[in-house]
Simulated scan of single mutants.
Amino acid sequence: MTVAWTAHRFSGGILALDTTNTVVLRCDPARRFDRFDDPAEISRFAAAASIFRHQEIGRPLTVADADAVAPKVRALRESTDALFRRPAAGKPLEADAMAGFLRHCATAIDGREELLATADAPFGPPDKPLAFETALAVSALSLLLPANLKRLKICPNCGWLFLDKSRNSSRLWCDMSVCGNRTKARHHYRRTRMQGEKTYG
């Protein structure tokens, strides 16, 4: 089924986390599913990311061969989640997870003839096409910056990883308009139900 790559799908704060979140209900084996099972969705995701992550990347993202690049993208996505879900939960990084993550970053970049990067443009020359897997690796590596590590969070509603860019690091959900409202609606329902039970109990 074709995915609608709307703004909500880019609630992670940076490309690497948006990509990690393409595995839906990751922590629920019975209901978990992968939006990249169809490699064609990687191309469509990259096209949407060119718009929604333009401020981060500054370049249009391209996928030359979705079938060929899919294993690299999925491997980097999974190693990113394995490494950074721990600090998002207040735990230290693991050496084994770091080693795998760095290998997959290197694999995603190896053999690419890309112009990377300057202090002002970490993804290289603005407005020139950039391979999606290269941009994904650069974005993922940026999560190792201390300023980013301490802002990593896990949405309590859906389990997505996100970077809390709010001024006082008070953001609770990946997307207030979706997960925030759903959580508030559930709490309201429970309160109303409890009040009803007290009234008629």
Rank of each mutant, 00 (worst) to 15 (best):
D120M: 14
P146M: 11
L115W: 09
P126I: 09
P156R: 10
T134Y: 03
A108Q: 06
A135V: 01
E133Q: 13
G111L: 00
I109M: 13
A119N: 09
L149C: 05
R112S: 12
A119H: 10
N148C: 08
L141P: 07
D127W: 08
L145E: 15
L143M: 01
E114Q: 14
A147H: 11
R112D: 01
F123L: 13
C155V: 07
P146N: 09
K153T: 02
E133I: 02
E114H: 13
P125G: 06
L116G: 03
L144V: 01
A131V: 02
N157G: 14
L149S: 05
A117G: 15
V138D: 02
P156Q: 08
F123I: 13
V138W: 07
S139M: 00
D120I: 09
L149F: 06
I154R: 12
E113I: 07
L141F: 12
N157Y: 14
P129K: 06
A147S: 14
C158V: 04
P146C: 03
A140Y: 04
D127V: 11
P125V: 05
G124L: 15
P156D: 07
R112Y: 06
V138M: 08
C158D: 05
L116W: 08
C158L: 03
A108P: 02
F132R: 11
P125C: 04
N148W: 06
S139W: 01
T134P: 00
N148P: 03
G159H: 09
P126D: 04
V138A: 10
L130D: 02
I109N: 04
E113L: 12
P156T: 13
C155P: 00
T118H: 10
D110L: 06
L152D: 00
F123P: 08
D110W: 12
L141Y: 13
G124A: 15
T118A: 10
A119C: 03
D110H: 15
S139E: 01
R112E: 04
P122A: 08
C155A: 09
P126H: 12
G159Y: 10
P126C: 09
L152R: 01
L152V: 01
G124S: 15
I109L: 11
V138P: 00
N157Q: 15
L149W: 04
E114V: 14
K153S: 04
I154P: 03
P126W: 10
P125S: 11
R112L: 10
G111Y: 00
I154D: 02
D127P: 01
F123C: 10
L115Q: 12
A108C: 15
N157S: 15
T134I: 00
A137C: 06
L145I: 07
S139P: 01
N148T: 02
N157V: 15
C155Y: 11
C155H: 08
L149M: 03
L130R: 06
F132V: 11
C155S: 11
C155D: 13
P125E: 02
L136W: 08
K153M: 01
T118L: 09
P129M: 04
K150E: 15
F132E: 12
R112F: 03
A135Y: 07
D120T: 14
